[in-house]
Design a protein around this nucleic acid. Structure first.
Lengths: 153, 153
DNA sequence: ACTGAAAGGGTTCCAGG
DNA sequence: CCTGGAACCCTTTCAGT
């Protein structure tokens, strides 16, 4: 199930992560190969789902998203039905950029991106009205020091 | 400093976030306009830095990155020099995908993506050997429920 | 498995409404 | 500010090595 990229595959993935907007020629040159072999490898990796969605990074601040919260959630409920509803709620809410189920005494962590603290409060009220939650801690980001989706290949 | 996208700009940004790999024609059709105006808007937003890097989402699990940690850091040091070194360390470490400075009693949160728990421990040892840190809590992700970089425009 | 080339399609730009 | 079209570049495929 684990895909084992060879050296050239890894170089291609690194280049695509860094800038997916370049031409095949440029990427081929960057990895020291030529168009067709690089094209075949990209095609294979796309079909295998290794390479997924292509997207653009937007400037969140400039677009008015000035508040990022990390939300630590403890719950006492662990039934299937509660969890199903909780996950559905998270997936339906576009301000939730990340959600992970955790090991340990904190059950879930969310990354929530909103325009301001009021918008966070609206999200919070909506969340606790939809599912029972035992304890919530919100950590407010003052400064985004680093943000990347690139894997350290 | 805050860019005010109009309705069409917002539609374009939504489409690009969802799939930046389509042709201008397709995007123009999706937003109910045509090539040239959409192209001009994208160009303007690129030049303004609203639209940044173009990238691909890779399948982390399939590539062997099976462990994600959220790391909560408390420090007693708040001098400029300590902070400079700490930030430089975080930025230099490719396994750190996110780093935020926080308000409140936890000073920093990191998202760290590694192949396994041993690789996390190596990162942790390297970090505490480079800068003094008062207290560290590592939260291990058991399940990635949701992960997106899209802003809720 | 790579090279080179050819066809089709897409991006970029410009003239005109 | 939009439409349509022309030129050029890139992607995609294929035959040859």
């Amino acid at each position: 199930m684990t895909f084992q990229p060879d050296d050239t595959d890894r170089k291609i993935l690194r280049e695509l992560q860094a800038d997916a907007g370049r031409s095949l020629d440029e990427i081929a040159r960057a990895v020291g190969s030529s168009k067709t072999p690089v094209w075949n490898r990209i095609k294979r990796m796309r079909e295998a789902g290794i390479i997924g969605q292509q997207t653009v990074m937007l400037d969140a601040e400039a677009l008015g998203f000035e508040a990022t919260f990390f939300v630590l959630i403890r719950t006492s409920e662990h039934e299937a039905e509660w969890q199903r509803k909780f996950l559905a709620t998270l997936r339906a809410r576009p301000e939730v950029q990340e959600a992970h189920r955790l090991a340990g005494d904190i059950d879930y962590i969310l990354k929530v991106r909103v325009k301001n603290a009021r918008a966070y409060d609206q999200f919070y009220q909506a969340l606790i009205s939809e599912v029972r939650i035992y304890n919530v801690t919100a950590l407010l980001s003052m400064e985004e020091i680093k943000s990347t989706v690139a894997l350290p290949l």
